[in-house]
């Protein structure tokens, strides 16, 4: 079971969180014209990386905040966690 440092609450076990997918995907702005390709990239196309991956988790049974977690998808090592408002550098 992963041990995740919630930027708001501190170290918590994985069973308090739910997974939310790739954190680097940006939703196209509302009302902006986008091509089918751009839209598909937003909705469907994911890289499914092996290695370091920024992803979203929600601290569902805690502060309910969505957070960004940098995790190695092969080893589960977690390198960094950020608040929703913090930019991935």
């Amino acid at each position: 079971m992963l041990y995740i440092k919630c930027p708001h609450c501190g170290w918590r076990s994985q069973n308090e969180f739910s997974y939310g997918g790739d954190a680097t995907v940006k939703r196209p702005e509302l009302g902006k014209e986008v091509t089918d390709q751009e839209w598909d990239n937003f909705v469907y196309n994911r890289k499914s990386l092996k290695g370091k991956h920024w992803e979203l988790w929600q601290h569902l049974s805690g502060c309910r905040q969505w957070i960004k977690v940098e995790r190695d998808t092969a080893t589960h090592e977690i390198f960094n966690t950020l608040k929703a408002s913090e930019e991935i550098s």
Partner: peptide, 13 residues
């Protein structure tokens, strides 16, 4: 509820 929180916290803060 999670859906609304997602948009409020991440997409349209």
């Amino acid at each position: 509820l999670s859906h609304l929180e997602y948009y409020l916290q991440l997409v349209w803060p």
